[in-house]
Nucleic acid binder design. Structure first.
Lengths: 223, 223
DNA sequence: GATATAATTATACGCATGAATAATTAATGC
DNA sequence: GCATTAATTATTCATGCGTATAATTATATC
C-alpha cells in the first residue's frame, strides 16, 4: 500500500531524463527567489529558467507560495540535519566541547553549503532575505525548520558557560545568527567595508575570524 | 536665482494644512515598504494609506523607485548625521574612547530611532530588508548614505586597538552590523529564541548586552 | 496494441500593477 | 478680478502577474 512506491512504478508521460523536472524547477526557483526575493520572483521567470511550461510548476507544487516553501524546506532540512549531527559528535565525546567548537559546529554546514555551488549559495542568500521578512508565514517556516536544533545548541552552550544566565545566552545567540547570516549573504559587500583588503583573508580563514569573534562575545562575563 | 526660494513663494493650489502632503506620503511609504518590502509594496497602497491620489505620488516623486530612494535618504541622512556627531564628541575628548563607547555611539542613534515612533521603527525594518537585497541599486543607496561614517568608526577603532590589523577590524565591523541589524529588525523573533524570557531584559539593557557582546568580539586578540 | 493515466504544453482569464494623461481646484501676482 | 501656475484628482492604458483549464504527449499495464 506504499503510495510513493506505487507512484514510482506508474509514471507514464515521464520523459527519459534522469534528473527529474521537479528537481530542476526547485533548483532554478531557489536561484530566482534568492536574486529577486519572494515578491520579486515570478512563476513565469522560474518556468523560463527551468525551461519548462509555467503550468507544470502549478502541477507539481500548487501555488507560488507552496513552491517557495518546498524550496526552503528542502535545503533547510539538510542544514538542520547537519547541525544536529555535528552537535551530537561534540556531545558524545568524553571531554566537554569548547565554545569555539560549538559555534563552529553550528556555522560550518551553512558555510559549506554556500560554497557547494550556485544552488547552495542561492539558498543562503534566500534565507537571509527570509530572515528580514516579517511576515507571519516566513516566521513560521523558519521556526518549523530550525528551532529544534537552535534550542539544542543553546542548551549545550549553557552547560559549558554555567556562570552566564540562560536568557543572556539566548540573547547572544540571536546576535550570532544575525552576524553570520549577514556575512554569508554577500561577501562582496564585506570587501566594500574593508576597501578590498578582504581578498587577503581566505574563505576558511574568514570562518575562523567569525568563530573567534562570536565566541569571545558569548563568553564575556555579564557585568 | 534660488529656485527653491522662488518655489516657496509661488505655490498656488496648496491647501492650508501645515504638514505637507509630501511628508505625509513619505511617512506612509516608509511603513508600507517596511511591512511589505519594495516589490511587495504598491503605489496604490501608499496612496491609500496617505489618503491621497495615486498620481500625486508620481507628481512629487516620479517613479516608485524614486519614492523609495527619497524615503531611505531622508532618515538615513539623519542617522548618519547622528553617528558623526556622536563620534566627534568622543574624539574631541582628551582621553581616548573605549571600544564600548565607540560601539555604543554607533548603535545608539538607530536604537533611538527604533523607539521614536511608528515611522522610525518602520525605517529600521525597511533598512534591514534593504541590507538583505543584493540588487545593485540597494547596494549603491546604502553606500551613498552610510559609507563615510562607517569608515570613520573603523578608523577610530583602529587607533585604540593597535594590536589588531586593520583588515581584521573591518571584517569584525561587518559582523557587528549584521548582529545589530538583525536584532533591531524584529525583537519579537528574539523572544522566540529565548522562549519568552526576553521580557525580563529591558530595552535599554538589551542595548548594553549587545554592546558588551560586540566589544568583546572586537577586542579579542587575533590568534 | 488499446486503454488508462501521468507528465507536459498551449492558451486564456481576470485582475492588479506602475505609469501616464487629462481635467479640476486653489492660491498667487499684477 | 483675471490670468497664471502649482497642487490634486479622476480616469485611462498597457502590461505582467498568478491562476486555471483544456489539449497533447508519453509511458506503463494487460
Amino acid at each position: 500500500m506504499n503510495e510513493t512506491a506505487i507512484a514510482r512504478h506508474r509514471r507514464p508521460g515521464r520523459p527519459k531524463e534522469d534528473t527529474s523536472l521537479k528537481e530542476t524547477i526547485l533548483n532554478h526557483a531557489e536561484i530566482a527567489f534568492a536574486e529577486n526575493g519572494y515578491e520579486g520572483t515570478t512563476v513565469r521567470d522560474v518556468a523560463a529558467r527551468a525551461g519548462v511550461n509555467q503550468a507544470l510548476i502549478r502541477y507539481y507544487f500548487g501555488s507560488k507560495s507552496d513552491l517557495f516553501d518546498e524550496v526552503f524546506r528542502r535545503r533547510g532540512g539538510i542544514l538542520s540535519g547537519h547541525r544536529h549531527v555535528n552537535l551530537d559528535r561534540l556531545l558524545d565525546r568524553p571531554e566537554p566541547p569548547t565554545v569555539e567548537e560549538i559555534v563552529h559546529a553550528y556555522l560550518k554546514p551553512q558555510w559549506d553549503m554556500k560554497y557547494s555551488g550556485e544552488s547552495g549559495a542561492a539558498f543562503v542568500r534566500m534565507q537571509a532575505r527570509l530572515h528580514a521578512e516579517p511576515e507571519e508565514h516566513a516566521l513560521r517556516l523558519r521556526r518549523e525548520v530550525y528551532d529544534a536544533s537552535v534550542k539544542r545548541y543553546i542548551a549545550a552552550l549553557g552547560s559549558i558557560l554555567p556562570e552566564i544566565p540562560k536568557e543572556v545566552i539566548s540573547t547572544r545567540w540571536a546576535f550570532l545568527v544575525g552576524a553570520y547570516l549577514f556575512m554569508l549573504n554577500d561577501l562582496a559587500r564585506l570587501s566594500d567595508l574593508t576597501e578590498g583588503r578582504l581578498a587577503e583573508i581566505g574563505k576558511e580563514e574568514l570562518l575562523d575570524h567569525l568563530v573567534r569573534f562570536l565566541s569571545a562575545g558569548l563568553r564575556t562575563p555579564v557585568s
